[in-house]
């Protein structure tokens, strides 16, 4: 079997907040076609890890390398978030960050921003090219809403959506930026079992149909074990294990990390 193309390569990533080392030399790789998972107890540094990759924080040490297929590799350290997104790496947020006073459709349309070009003067003149581009944005966004099952809410304000729908809208918005790698931060948080099952399905669909690799953070073990391989485990900022779901389940360090958390609580 041919070696799979490596899309994201993180080497020895370290992030300090003052005296606190939130992420401690973590290395991780995501290959083409994979659904990788990053798990770990609360406060392990998972979200911080995402923020470093997507340019929201500049990491203290380490390398983040992106290898888009057929394009030159780029080092992401210190790049602005919008540049990272332009390179084809999109994300969702753990604490939902939708544009609340915009409609559901407009939220997705924002995702198209970096793939469209009309400037200020052209927008004022609104020539044929601009009108066509606008219509294209609307149609693409609507298709994405259909894909994630939110077409019925198109003209609703996003703040009025149920929780599960808001999470799916975040995914649609991220997809609108045409990523080849999608980072999902706890996409199932706050969802009921039925919604989680739907999400499970949606993530697999995105991975298969769109050829988008996925790296997700999740606390719902059932979802993680179901769909993802490989799994990376973090605790106190350090990577303590990586491997296939079965290996992770049997790993004594992982069991200890999770049991330890329960006895603490």
């Amino acid at each position: 079997m041919a070696e799979k193309h490596k899309l994201l390569e993180v080497k020895g990533l370290t992030m300090d907040f003052g005296g606190l080392r939130a992420v401690d030399s973590v290395s991780l790789e995501v290959h083409e076609g994979e659904i990788a998972a990053l798990i770990g107890p609360n406060g392990a540094g998972k979200t911080t890890f995402f923020n470093c990759i997507t340019g929201i924080y500049t990491p203290t040490k380490g390398d983040i390398l992106l290898h888009p297929k057929g394009l030159e590799s780029r080092r992401l350290n210190g790049l602005k978030p919008n540049k990272v997104t332009e390179m084809g790496l999109a994300r969702t947020f753990q604490n939902i960050r939708l544009f609340h006073d915009m409609t559901v459709l407009e939220n997705v349309m924002i995702g198209r921003h970096c793939r469209t070009t009309s400037g200020i003067l052209h927008s004022i003149l609104r020539g044929k090219a601009v009108r066509e581009e606008e219509q294209q944005i609307v149609e693409t966004s609507y298709q994405l809403l259909e894909k994630v099952g939110l077409a019925e809410f198109t003209n609703e304000f996003s703040k009025n959506l149920p929780y599960g729908a808001q999470r799916r809208l975040e995914i649609a918005r991220a997809l609108a930026t045409e990523p080849f790698l999608l980072l999902l931060d706890e996409p199932a948080a706050g969802m009921n079992p039925q919604e989680t099952a739907d999400l499970d399905h949606l993530i697999c669909k995105i991975s298969e149909e769109e050829q988008i690799a996925i790296l997700l953070i999740e606390h719902d073990m059932k979802l993680v074990m179901n769909i993802s391989n490989p799994i990376y485990v973090m605790e106190y900022g350090k990577k303590i294990a990586e491997g296939a779901p079965q290996q992770i389940k049997d790993n004594p360090k992982v069991i200890e990390a999770y049991l330890g958390e329960e006895t603490d609580a």
Binding site: E86, A90, L98, F99, H113, A174
Partner: peptide
């Protein structure tokens, strides 16, 4: 933050 993360 969401805005820049969406590529703006």
């Amino acid at each position: 933050i969401a805005c820049v993360a969406m590529g703006i």
